[in-house]
Design a binder for these strands. Structure first.
Length: 431
DNA sequence: TCTGGGGTCCTAGGACCC
DNA sequence: TCTGGGGTCCTAGGACCC
């Protein structure tokens, strides 16, 4: 059987590239993009990486470094990134019959019928076309398995000989060539091997991808579970992680956020929770699911020293599965009442749903609790569809439940937010 | 003063059943 | 005093990913 080669296409420094697209002054300069609440660095341009700014670094720790080097600092703008991501993915879909959108900035492409040399040429065309149509630079790794494609992709960025080309192709490698490459890759740089496993493996003399490839199956399975064993097979060139071409519906959905400032009052906390529930219910309806279990959690800062900490969560089984915002909000409020303690400075809250089932397949509760009879159910469904439609067209939060409040005084800090160039005409025209 | 958010999978252990 | 064994379901915790 002939194996189908896999390409991993990865957008370079994606969030930074998005910001640069609409702000050419950011080219050839160190740029970072921050997490929610402007807390951590979550994307860096190559220039910023060279300054030694680490991924995930808290802003207050690198503030001097940023200032001294006149680094451009931007708040994250997910609306913009999601929109550009879609354009990139649509472009990629022209080039392969099978595409797995793996994350906001990465996709696996299966490219049957190409020789190793032809794959190279095809990868050049993909890069060129994505660049032309979206302006986003990408790197491409080509290999017989997903794990090796990730590894090859990494080489295309790290290896100075390939950096300019942005393509690294190991589909034509001999066994000896592949072994040599794997021996140069540290075990912590393998997809699926995190810091904990890497430290463990190093203690057992396994330092490189080559060492791991050669480790005995039984030992690997015992210590790294079956997932670790699959990673090892993939290093050996045996595909063990199948293509996931259609995203399966989510099994859990979470909406949580740290506050822009600490919250003490129940009412403000309740407003935040209602806002998060509304957003969560939208996500639920977008995948045509209803939830049977709802969890609410709150906590004070993990980091604040000298202040008393408090964290609690409550999990509720709902009378019947639902995606109806008012009902979810009412349950969440009751849950919050159960765990709220006055006198603490809360830093974060969140809501989560589990036990998701398809909207069409749900069991009706015959005893009139919750949303009740089929006619009410249908009316509520239509109401939510109308609300979702309006919010899609007019912008998130145009129509909202009253308990969510209107001020969001506790909302995120986003001091350096770029306009939503691709989704809001008014913001594009304002620049 | 200031430290993100949203997911998945696997395993062990307890509850419960026959 | 000795005190089965196997199956299922659920949950909590750990590890990983971007």
């Amino acid at each position: 059987m002939i194996q189908t080669p896999v390409a991993l296409v990865d957008c370079n420094n994606f969030y930074v590239s998005c910001e640069r697209l609409f702000n050419p002054a950011l080219h050839n300069r160190p740029v970072v993009v921050l997490s929610n609440n402007d807390g951590c660095v979550i994307a860096r341009s190559n220039e910023a990486k060279e300054l030694g700014i680490k991924m995930g670094a808290p802003v207050f720790e690198v503030r001097d470094l940023l200032k001294k080097n006149q680094v451009e600092v931007w708040s994250s703008n997910y609306t913009l990134y999601a929109s550009l991501s879609q354009r990139v993915m649509t472009t990629l879909e022209m080039f392969a019959p099978e595409v797995e959108v793996y994350s906001i900035d990465e996709a696996f492409l299966w490219l049957p019928g190409f020789s190793p040399a032809e794959l190279d040429a095809q990868a050049v065309r993909i890069r060129q076309k994505v660049g032309q149509w979206t302006g986003i630079p990408v790197s491409i790794g080509l290999a017989p398995t997903k794990t090796l494609a990730k590894l090859a992709n990494r080489q295309s960025k790290k290896n100075p000989l390939y950096k300019e080309k942005g393509i690294f192709n190991i589909t034509g490698y001999s066994r000896a060539q592949l072994d040599e490459l794997l021996a140069s890759v540290r075990v912590e740089d393998i997809w699926g091997i995190g810091a904990r496993r890497a430290a463990f493996l190093q203690q057992h003399g396994i330092d490189t991808a080559y060492d791991l490839k050669e480790a005995p199956d039984r030992w690997v399975q015992k210590h790294l579970t079956v997932m670790g064993l699959r990673t090892v097979y993939e290093l050996r060139g045996i595909p063990s992680f199948p293509a996931e071409l259609a995203a399966p519906p989510k099994k859990t959905i979470v909406t949580s956020r740290g506050f822009g400032r600490d919250i003490e009052s129940f009412e403000e906390l309740s407003e935040a929770v209602a806002t998060y529930v509304s957003r969560l219910a939208e996500k639920l309806r977008a995948q045509h699911s209803v939830a049977s279990v709802l969890e609410v959690f709150i906590h004070t800062s993990h980091f604040a020293k000298g202040r008393e900490r408090y964290a609690n969560a409550v999990t509720m089984r709902l009378p019947q599965p639902t995606a109806y915002t008012p009902e979810l909000v009412a349950h969440a409020r009751r849950g919050l009442e159960a765990i709220y303690r006055p006198g603490f400075k809360y830093q974060k809250a969140g809501v989560m749903v589990m036990g998701l089932v398809p909207e069409t397949g749900r069991q009706l509760n015959l005893f009139g609790e919750g949303e009740g009879d089929p006619a009410t159910l249908e009316r509520n469904r239509k109401l939510m569809a109308a609300v979702d439609g309006l919010n899609r067209q007019m912008g998130r939060g145009t129509v909202r439940i009253a308990t969510a409040g209107t001020t969001e005084a506790w909302g995120m800090r986003r001091g350096k937010l770029s306009p939503r160039y691709t989704t809001r005409w008014d913001e594009l025209l304002a620049i």
